[in-house]
Design a protein around this nucleic acid. Structure first.
Length: 217
DNA sequence: TTGTGTTTTACGACCTCC
DNA sequence: GGAGGTCGTAAAACACAA
């Protein structure tokens, strides 16, 4: 069996930290076949494919993970010097420390993305609720407007019926057979037909609703 | 016990920066 | 060109329900 230098290093480390390595791969022949074929490794310290690999993947101890977490908390990037120092302190291969940081950064990024997603989702939900509320408010206001228009029409008709020779009534026609007060008004699917309401006042003599009402009150 | 889903460790490919 | 980064993924380790 040909051990690489890294294999020897890991064997040494495994003696120092026996619990770092969960188990040593049995000689070829007794190795359980992996479900999926591992990619070709390059200078691997822990080939898991049962080829010439001596070690299975090992789990870091709690202490090692805690130290790495503390270090990661200080700084997410890992300079060469810090990597070597950490590796020496923890009895790990510098490559393991580097890999741990890579994976930790990936986890951190995923978590951050998840948090950002949740924030955006919450604010989107709030906007949707707000939109619904505003839409129902618009419908309510349009209904009020419609009722007011009807009331105006009713009053106008009453006034006209009471004083047929009124100068106003002669100049402002609200005859039913003229342009209808509400035209061909109907509440459409989008309710926007309210927007087309108009008053049948003589051309070039626009008066607004309040002013027009005041003429009759 | 076993099947299955998740987490952790490790690697290869590719990219960027000095 | 080398060191160190991200990204995608393999596979061991682990958790847990059935």
């Amino acid at each position: 069996m040909n051990y690489t230098v890294d294999d020897q290093n890991m064997a040494f480390i495994s003696q120092l930290y026996p619990d770092v390595y969960t188990q040593i791969v049995q000689p070829v022949g007794e190795v359980k076949q992996p479900k999926r074929r591992r990619k070709k490794t390059k200078g691997s310290v822990a080939s898991a494919d049962g080829g010439n690999g001596l070690f299975r993947k090992r789990k870091l101890t709690d202490e090692q993970v805690n130290m790495l977490e503390m270090s990661f908390g200080d700084e997410h990037k890992l300079e060469s010097e810090r990597k070597d120092r950490l590796a020496a302190e923890l009895g790990l291969d510098p490559r393991q420390v580097a890999v741990w940081f890579q994976n930790r950064r990936a986890r951190w990024k995923n978590k951050r993305l998840e948090e950002e997603y949740n924030k955006l989702k919450n604010s989107h939900d709030n906007v949707v609720v707000d939109k619904c509320r505003l839409e129902s408010e618009v419908i309510q206001l349009k209904e009020q407007l419609y009722d007011a228009e009807r009331e105006i029409q009713r009053l106008a008709e009453r006034v006209e019926g009471g004083s047929s020779n009124s100068p106003i009534s002669s100049s402002v026609s609200v005859e039913a057979n003229e342009t209808p007060f509400f035209g061909d008004y109907k509440v459409g699917d989008d309710g926007d037909d309210y927007d087309h309401l108009f008053y049948p006042v003589p051309e070039n003599s626009y008066i607004d609703e309040a002013e027009w009402m005041s003429l009759y009150i």
